[in-house]
Simulated scan of single mutants.
Amino acid sequence: MNWIPEYNFILASKSPRRQELLKSLGIDFQVKTKEVDEIYPPELAPAKIPGYLAEKKANAFADELNNNDMLITADTIVVLNGKVLEKPDDYDHAYEMLSALSGNMHEVITGVCLSSTNKSVTFSALTNVQFKKLTAAEIDYYITNFKPFDKAGAYGIQEWIGSIGISHIEGSFYNVMGLPLQKLYEEIQKF
């Protein structure tokens, strides 16, 4: 029995992590991307930002979907004490972010939008992530060797820093990587 509905799946994401995660669900899909500015209204609550951005990315494809297409768009943010940590600009910015995350619990929120020609559903997932107190040498080693400049909060949970630095999480591990797989599976089935 195949659980996958009969759609032509399109993942609108350049993220190799999202592509790898979607493959792990056994879904055949094609990747299509567009440049979409990731600007959101400043008054938007952090919990609403990823869904807003996932919908914004989906809207860029609105006129291009065919009858049997299902478009998947997503956005992930890291929130520390109510402040959104974007992708770092450079080494110093990444160092500053990881120093702030060190020894603290933060939230990772991923918003996902599923779209077809006649329907759209947006949902999000939240995972709490606890970092141990990181040393300056650990932070430097990670940034120098893994260059996490394409990652919200300046880290990838599946990389070295996650292995040595994260003491525990509450919620979906895959959500922290960029797609809440279990929730995505449920939502595709309901769609």
Rank of each mutant, 00 (worst) to 15 (best):
D140C: 03
Y95L: 12
I164S: 02
L184N: 12
G111P: 10
E138W: 03
I169H: 00
S99N: 13
A100L: 09
M97N: 09
S99V: 09
V129P: 00
S115Y: 10
I161R: 02
L179A: 11
I139T: 00
Y155D: 06
F146I: 00
Q130E: 14
N128W: 11
I109S: 10
E96L: 13
L101P: 07
D140T: 14
G178K: 05
I109L: 05
D150K: 11
Q182G: 10
S120I: 15
K133P: 06
T127N: 01
G165L: 02
L101D: 07
S124E: 12
Q130D: 09
V176F: 07
S115H: 14
A154F: 11
S124Q: 11
G178I: 02
G178T: 02
P148C: 04
G156N: 01
S163M: 12
Y142L: 06
V108D: 07
S116E: 11
S167P: 02
S172M: 08
I157K: 01
A152V: 00
V129A: 03
E170F: 07
K119T: 08
L126C: 14
N175C: 09
K133R: 10
S167C: 05
Q158Y: 06
K132L: 03
T135V: 06
Y142P: 03
L114M: 09
V121N: 11
I109K: 07
M97E: 04
Y141M: 08
V129F: 02
E138F: 07
L101S: 03
A154N: 03
L101E: 06
S163C: 11
Y95W: 14
S115F: 09
H106G: 12
M97I: 08
A136F: 02
L184K: 10
D150S: 12
A100T: 00
K133W: 03
S124K: 10
A125Q: 15
G178R: 07
I164G: 03
G111W: 03
L179S: 08
Y155R: 10
Y95Q: 13
I161A: 05
S116G: 15
A100Y: 01
S115T: 15
F149G: 06
